[in-house]
Each structure stands twice: as structure tokens, then as C-alpha cells.
Design a protein around this nucleic acid. Sequence first.
DNA 1: ATAATAGTGTCTCTAAGACATTATATT
DNA 2: AATATAATGTCTTAGAGACACTATTAT
Lengths: 240, 240
Amino acid sequence: MDIDEQAYLAAYDASRYARPSVTVDVVLLTVRDGAVHVLLTRRTVQPFRDQWSLVGTFLDIDETLDETAHRALRVKAGLDDVFVEQLFTFGDLGRDPRTRVLSVAYYALVEPARLEAAVDARGGSTLWLARVADGVAVDEAGVSVPLPFDHATILATAIGRIRGKLGYSDIGFELLGDAFTLRDLRLVYEAILGRPLNKDSFRRTILARGVVEPTGGVLTGVGHRPPALYRFRPLADGEV
Amino acid sequence: MDIDEQAYLAAYDASRYARPSVTVDVVLLTVRDGAVHVLLTRRTVQPFRDQWSLVGTFLDIDETLDETAHRALRVKAGLDDVFVEQLFTFGDLGRDPRTRVLSVAYYALVEPARLEAAVDARGGSTLWLARVADGVAVDEAGVSVPLPFDHATILATAIGRIRGKLGYSDIGFELLGDAFTLRDLRLVYEAILGRPLNKDSFRRTILARGVVEPTGGVLTGVGHRPPALYRFRPLADGEV
DNA sequence: ATAATAGTGTCTCTAAGACATTATATT
DNA sequence: AATATAATGTCTTAGAGACACTATTAT
């Protein structure tokens, strides 16, 4: 860095350019009872006060985007150590009635037990694990839930993204606990894809990929032949 | 919207929250001579003055992110009507020495003839169509070119993304003109994937997908049997 | 014993790789 | 005529769907 550049940086005034506000909104998903669910939080402030919305917060000036996503989950849902991945940045002009606000959207995947515990801890009036049908949040009666801002678009985008990533990544395992049956795994896949999968091919394909290994245990008390339990085994670099 | 909400919005002060600066940086790619190339522009201002960088600009407060990407291409490279798609938003703390700057990165794909015309129009001292090897911009001697900010990461991310999208989208056709041979198309795929493809399977797979149709013409003057010319045929909705 | 799902084995079908063969231009 | 690539056809191989059959538990 030369003298010119040092002088330039010292004199730099960030307010010369108009700057938008930036939020991070997180689509926190799980699969329960064969259906995708999204964690919604009731807004306590204007605008859209009392409406159910995605978990989000304004970006702090000294934290990375990933850190903002984790902070939103920690503060708004009491969750730590959640798998998150950046989804898309939404920047349409009218998307926030207050002012120009960009939303850097993330999706997060977590096993249902942890989400249910989070909802129980905060109480059902502030958190709600809503079912998602065809990319739309719906209530118990199957009626679609209106979401503020462009959160409906963000949710639908997240569903589309993880649907696509399911085939070539290991994100499906984020939605399961430490031990699971191949049936559990298949139900997760079917819920996300929204269609049934061939039971036999699924077993063969998953086992052939080598991404799961038997724990040695079986699941008993199910009224039929006990299925073997598996755990996720991340493939070593370069391993087939 | 109720009275409370109207009053709230009227009184809203965006400066309450710290706001980052936001740029849009575009990875403008093409395939020429069997290799991926990226359009770089020489920086005329601090920081990193005179270094080659991606095409980018600060977000205007009243334009969408897509519009900013198109404006960057128009102003910095003289290109209109280019295919662009959002890539990822980069927000690490130290990525810009001036202040906190988010970069919403895009990639753009265009046929080589248009890019060469753009470089010729502006002159080689401001624009450079650099070859990309293994996700890294290199000069004529194959030596890697240092890029400012985290532009090297952005470029590598773009290459990875289009590599993945090649299999399940039609982005490959953005890199070709109106009429092309199946060989041209295969060379584009091979350049992006960085590996040779089976010639026969490629022909069969592409034709079976039905995304190209013969123009009726052939390419002559090639010293061997003239190959048929094809054009891109976007599939109708629901069409296999 | 019955019901229900787990798990194995086999056949078929489809798509891709390998390779041989014919076609048609330039030189 | 020689050469180079286009284009077609056939054989093989790998993986997924379909389905039959056996295994093992709870009730």
C-alpha cells in the first residue's frame, strides 16, 4: 500500500454514498411427521406488528453475515450451533415499507426435537413451528399464513434451494438426530421433495454412497422387524 | 395498515441502525478457444488503483440489485442485454480497507464475440479478457493475476456455481451465438467443467433433452464433413 | 398366528461409455 | 487419394424401478 492509498483511506467518508439498511432473515426448517416445518416468530414491533414472520435481525456493523444469522437464531429462538447456509439476497425496492432494506436470506436446518424444545421454552405465543405445503406456510387447517415483507418469497426460495441441493449434498442429515433408520432418512427426503421415493432404490443408493454407517443398534418397540440404526459418516476428501 | 403503523412509518429514521455500503460485483464470463475467460477492468481510483478487478459499482438507493448489475456492465464495459444471475453476498469484515462494504456478487454470461467487441471499443488498457485456469485469472504466460478485495474468491465461487448449474440448467447456451455446432457446445461444457466429455454421449444426451433444434444449415470451410448448425430451443413449461 | 415393516435378491429398463462404421467436406 | 471430423449404430455397463421373497418383531 503506497502513501497515496494510505492518505486516501484516512480521508475516506463512507457517507458519501447512500447506504441501504441490511437485515439477515433465516428460514429455519425441520421435517416432522413427514412434512417440512418452518419456525415463525411473532413480530413485537412495527411494521407488521403481531404478524408471524421469519427469524431475522438487522446486521451489526462489526459482524459477518454468518454471525448475524447465528445471532438471530440465538436471540429470537434460543438456538445455538445450527447449520446455516446463505440463500439469496433480496433487494426489491418496495419490499420494506420503512426504507430501503436489503435482506440477506439464510436457511437453517435442525432436527425437530431441538425446535420443539425451543418453542416450548419460549411459549407458543412468540414462536410457532408452522407446516409448509408447496413452499407456503399453512396453519393447522391448511390455510396459508400471510407473511410480512417478501418473506413468502424467501420461504419458497429456500424450499426450492434445499430441494435441489438434496441430490448432491448431505444437507438431509442436518434434519436428523445422531442415530436414525433408513426409513427416517427417506421420510425426510420425501417431505422435502414432496413426492414418494422408491423404497428399495433409496436404500441401495444411500448405502452405495457410503455416507451412512450402522451404529450396530436397532430400533425396537415398533411392532415389526426392528430396523437397523445408522449414523452419518462424512466422506473423507477425495473418497468416492 | 392501521393508524399506528402509518404513524410509525412516518416517524421511522433509517439512520438509527448502522448501515454498510453495498456494491454489486459482476463476474462476466465467456468461453473462447476452449477456455473460460473473465472480463477485468483496470481500477482508476483508490484503493487498489491500476489493479485489474471485477466489474462493479456501488448500489444506488433507488435501483434493484439486478439493475445495479446491469448498470455496472453498461457503464464499465459498454454491454447491454446480458444474462446475469445473482451468485452470493460477500460480507467479511476486512474485505474492503475503506469501511464495511458488502458485495452482492453476480455472474454474467455472454458469447465471446460480444466481449471482444467490447474490449476493442474501450481499448486494452481499461478492459482485459483474461483467461481463467482452475478458478484463477491468469495472464498470457499462465501466471495468476492478483485481484483486489476478495475478488479472487468471488471469481472462484462463480466458476464453481456455473459448473454445478451446467448439468441442470441451460446457462451453457448463453455463451454461444444464435447458431452453433454440437462441437461448439461441447467445447463450452468442457471448458467450464475442466475435463473432456464423451463425444457420443454428449451428442445423444443433448439431442435427447430436446433443447436444441437444427437450423437446417451447416458449417462449411472446416476441412471435413460439415457439421449441422443448431439453435437453442427453450423448453415449454412442463415439456420434458 | 397375524400384521407390519425390514431387508435381500432378481429381473427389467434406461442412460452413458466404448467402439466400429459410414458420410462428406477440404487439401 | 488422404485426412479430419460428423453422424449413426451396436455392444456393454451401471444404476434405478418393480417386485417377489424371506426375516423379525409386537400384539
